Computed example of a mutant assay.
Amino acid sequence: MAAGMSLRFSSSESGGSGTRRVVASRFAGLDPSRFILPALVILLAAMGFGVFLVPEIVSIAFVFPLLVVAGLLLEPRRLYVALAACAVVVGVWAPNSGISVSRLLGALVSIAAVMWLSLLVARSRAQVGTRGLSGDRMFAELRDRIVTVGQVPDLPAGWAATSCILSAHGDRFSGDFVVAHLHPCGRRLEVALVDVSGKGTRAGTRSLLLSGALGALLGAVPAADFLRVANDYLLRQRWEEGFATAVHIDLDLGTGEYSVANAGHPAPARYTGGRARWTVLDGARGPLLGVVPGSTFPRQSGRLDRGDALLVYSDGVVEARDRDLTDGIDRMLGVATMSVLREGDVARDVCEAARSGEDDDRAALAVRRV
């Protein structure tokens, strides 16, 4: 009997949970946005009545937050309905507002401007495929992922590395980015600094896509083939502004031996601790990425001894309007020398000292054997 009671209780419990799952699945299929438009129309109608019945409490200005919410949450097709309802309310209110003609015209122009802006916002979010603030959060997350990929991992004792990326005009998206990979053995570091055509937000979307692709390639393909494979990838994208420059470093953290390949990028610099001077490594240079099919990228090799360093940077660090490029490089290397001597952050120091200021994206990465 006990067993039978237990069995019936278990069956009833499973049936209840099954009913709950069916109900939950039915509610899960509902689109919450379907209820936003009726709610906004009802609020607009209530506001319209309130303006007539209790104008000392309800103001026509309450239409502004409703229009902002409509622009953020409604797709354009449904937004037109909300805008029409708003126009009806305002059209009925205007002749009976009891305010001066100048104030009435000012209110009508303000309402029309906010209606137009809400429509622009809705169209923009419809292109992205998001509603509300989810699109902003999505782009913020992607931006943070770029920053995470560009962070140089902790290096073994005897090595130090810093990186810095500053975007044009303070934008949070940059056409310059860094990808780094420390091999599982902990003795080999690969780093690539890339400058996508354009700057700031305009180059941000291409930078997002390319950083993910090159971050996956780094360490997955032989170092000698990295730029060649990256070039093939950009050619397949067929972007109108599809080119990029890049420099790739393959560094053995055990011996200090390195090799550098350059794809149309400003030449890296090597610091020799014994002489306290920088040398520009302009011996190995290939074409821009995404321009010439089947390109090859020669590599230049060397060795870092204790106190030596490598510095890679984007053109925004050394280029400036009405300034000679050689002068910009000399100035950067002077800043880098002072930074090394005082044990500073070389990458950040050269980026912040760039003469281009906020007119261009700036990026730098420095690796030093200490």
Rank of each mutant, 00 (worst) to 15 (best):
V152T: 09
R206S: 11
A70F: 03
T19N: 08
S14R: 15
N96W: 11
M1C: 07
D232E: 15
V128K: 06
V22H: 02
V63D: 02
R299D: 01
L217N: 01
R342Q: 14
V128T: 09
L108E: 13
R275D: 08
D176I: 09
V370R: 13
G158F: 07
R306G: 08
M47I: 14
D136R: 13
F173P: 00
G254A: 12
D252S: 12
V147D: 03
V247K: 03
G357T: 11
R123M: 14
T279S: 07
A366I: 02
V63Y: 00
S12M: 12
P65A: 13
P76C: 09
T205E: 11
V179C: 08
L83S: 10
G212H: 11
R125I: 05
M332P: 02
L210F: 06
M138E: 15
R369H: 02
T162R: 12
I146D: 01
G273A: 05
A309P: 06
R369D: 03
A244Q: 04
N231Y: 05
P268C: 06
T245C: 09
Q151N: 06
S118F: 01
A353Y: 00
S118D: 01
V23I: 15
T205H: 10
L117V: 14
A366F: 04
S295G: 03
A261T: 03
Q127W: 05
R275N: 04
L365A: 10
V22F: 09
L67D: 10
G357L: 12
D31G: 04
R342D: 14
R202Y: 10
L73C: 10
S124R: 15
R348E: 13
I36K: 01
C86Y: 05
H183P: 00
D345V: 07
L209W: 04
L193R: 09
V370F: 04
R303I: 08
Q151M: 10
D154R: 12
V23T: 12
P76K: 11
F9A: 14
G290A: 09
S163H: 07
W116E: 11
D31T: 02
F35T: 06
D305F: 04
E141Y: 04
N96I: 10
V109A: 15
P32M: 07
P32H: 10
V367T: 03
V229P: 07
S118P: 05
G150C: 04
E56A: 14
M47Q: 08
L30M: 15
P222D: 15
L74F: 00
P153H: 05
G186W: 00
R125M: 13
L74W: 03
G50M: 04
R137D: 09
L208I: 14
C86H: 07
G256D: 03
L142D: 09
P38Y: 06
H183Q: 08
L365D: 00
D195R: 07
L30H: 10
Q237R: 11
E75P: 00
